[in-house]
Design a protein around this nucleic acid. Structure first.
Lengths: 189, 189
DNA sequence: CCGGTCAAGTTCCCTCAAGGAACCTAGCAT
DNA sequence: ATGCTAGGTTCCTTGAGGGAACTTGACCGG
């Protein structure tokens, strides 16, 4: 979709947004997760062009996020259902819903409510730390390159600035990943 | 960006993805949140066209997600920093990172690690229920229309199918929202 | 047997936005 | 006065998205 294949960049956000960072995909996933899996229903509900819908769906199937399943044999009819991988995207959707509700809810209140069926209550999804279970906020989290990080592809080059700004907690990435963008002019300058 | 202004649809995901559902925006936010706020650095790090970067940044500023701030007067230099609204998007980014790490990490391990500075440990962000504090999964959450929901704009029409599939927990949305897409052929058929 | 319909796509054409790269403008710096 | 750097704008071309019609395969009614 993008000229420079974002997916080639070894950054999790890039990988995820290459798939998900498209106006329609999130909406499609919302609908499919809610059980709306048929082509025509999706097209109608979203007002999306059928061509684009077909492209998105087959992409999502290729990525293993959706599964195309025959729900009826005679006449043969297919529907799309989320795979496990797809279901795990719900955290992203919930975060998106929550943010949208918080910042764009009108006078009437939020357009969407999330219910946690397990406990039976409406809920506000909270992102928490797997270790201490406290809520995570932007101010107390730091994203660092992990063992699989690569340099030079235009991602994670920002780490240098990070460690320059904050206390030098543990600036050593995996072998020398913390290289500044400005240290590596793009070969032509 | 999209022909049919998604933002006009009273769905939180639509509102959020109209802004965020673009391949670059998430990446820009990642960088800005990490402290990389200068135009040239962003352009270089992302490999994005300067034109598009300028457009995205001014959109993000208009939306109140970023603030354009002068960090030096002589010569005048500006940088972009996340506002509170912008910082709250970190939950979405964390969810995206987590998902990307889980499903696209190579042999070497995840390209990105998230550290929770408050507790000092690397963390896996977990989406939890604000009420019972248990993790939320796709299978035990239901998205229902809330008080601010509207009908007919091609969103949340899926509720009918939901209540048809599952146990009839509480199928009554706010006044008659639960209308099926197929009950309302789009005026021409 | 023939036309109609429905689901699930495809195909075609056209426009508009993204990409790329060059150009511009303010303030220094030399 | 010339150059450099940060922070954009402008111009041109390509290609993805929108819209809508067409296709395919199977059932349905007469």
């Amino acid at each position: 979709m993008t000229r420079v294949r974002l997916a080639d960049v070894a950054c999790s956000i890039a990988r995820a947004t290459d798939l998900f960072g498209d106006a329609w995909t999130a909406l499609i996933m919302r609908d499919v997760m809610a059980g709306l899996g048929r082509f025509d229903d999706l097209a109608r509900d979203l007002g999306i062009s059928r061509k684009v819908l077909a492209a998105r769906l087959s992409r999502l199937v290729d990525e293993g996020v959706l599964e195309r399943r025959r729900y009826q044999d005679r006449p043969p009819r297919e529907e799309y259902v989320p795979t496990r991988k797809g279901k795990e995207l719900s955290a992203v959707l919930l975060a998106l819903i929550d943010w949208g509700d918080r910042w764009y809810a009108g006078e009437d209140g939020p357009p969407a409510l999330v219910r946690h069926d397990a406990c039976g209550h409406d809920t506000t999804p909270v992102m928490t730390c797997s270790h201490c279970r406290e809520p995570l906020t932007a101010d107390d989290t730091t994203v660092r390159p992990g063992p699989g990080a690569r340099v030079g592809t235009g991602t994670l080059l920002l780490v240098d600035r990070l460690s320059a700004d904050g206390p030098p907690g543990d600036p050593s990435g995996p072998e020398g990943v913390a290289r500044s963008a400005r240290d590596a002019p793009s070969s032509s300058a």
